[in-house]
């Protein structure tokens, strides 16, 4: 049995294999390096929510692990760990990335934006306030991810249509399916940011 996983994927990528095969199981299995894996020490500065933070990690360490484990910014949640649900999204230089499948070294030195940068309980971003009023989060596990993606959308487009919101957030799974509330939240947050609406 072979498992598809980030680890195996990264091992295969590290071995310089071009991943062209669709039926890739045997391919992945064949290139797994002998154990034990050598540990490589890396060290870099990450500009997270405007603050430079230094982390030590291995070459294979993901950005999620650096943010949420090494640096203790636990707001960014990791769910599938297979780059398919979007819960772990963060912005790198303004663009949303799945941090579970982004290597930390790819983001070294770059500007990273996480849920902690959006707003805290004393200083909520309109997205968080409107989301709260509209029930855009049931369990809340996906919220940190789609919130930063929505922020990226609003940074570029202050008047998105419902369809534009859907297409921007199509890479985020909300298992509680608060989707209709999420769409209304982003559309109406844009109205607040444009100054056309106010939060009661």
């Amino acid at each position: 049995m072979m498992r598809y996983s980030r680890r195996n994927f990264l091992k295969a990528a590290g071995a310089g294999i071009t991943l062209t095969a669709i039926e890739g199981e045997s391919l992945f299995a064949a290139v797994a390096p002998p154990l034990p894996t050598p540990i490589t020490k890396e060290r870099a500065t990450f500009i997270i929510n405007g603050k430079p933070l230094v982390a030590e990690y291995e070459a294979r360490t993901t950005l999620w692990e650096v943010i949420a484990v090494k640096l203790g910014l636990t707001g960014t949640t990791r769910s599938c760990n297979r780059a398919s649900c979007g819960a772990c999204s963060v912005l790198i230089d303004g663009t949303p990335f799945y941090s579970c499948h982004t290597l930390a070294m790819e983001a070294a030195g770059k500007k990273i934006f996480t849920i902690e940068g959006l707003g805290d309980e004393k200083n909520l971003h309109p997205l968080q306030k409107v989301g709260y009023l509209y029930m855009a989060a049931d369990c809340g596990f996906c919220t940190a991810g789609w919130s930063v993606t929505a922020k990226a959308l609003l940074d570029k487009n202050l008047n998105p249509s419902a369809d534009e919101v859907k297409s921007a957030l199509a890479g985020h799974i909300c298992r509680c399916a608060a989707y209709s509330a999420i769409v209304r939240t982003v559309v109406d947050t844009a109205a607040v940011l444009r100054g056309e609406a106010e939060i009661i």
Binding site: I115, G119, D120, E121, L124, G131, Y132, G140, T143, A144
Partner: peptide, 9 residues
């Protein structure tokens, strides 16, 4: 509910 929106739940 608010901690769900701030990443603190």
């Amino acid at each position: 509910a608010i901690p769900r929106y701030t990443g603190k739940a």
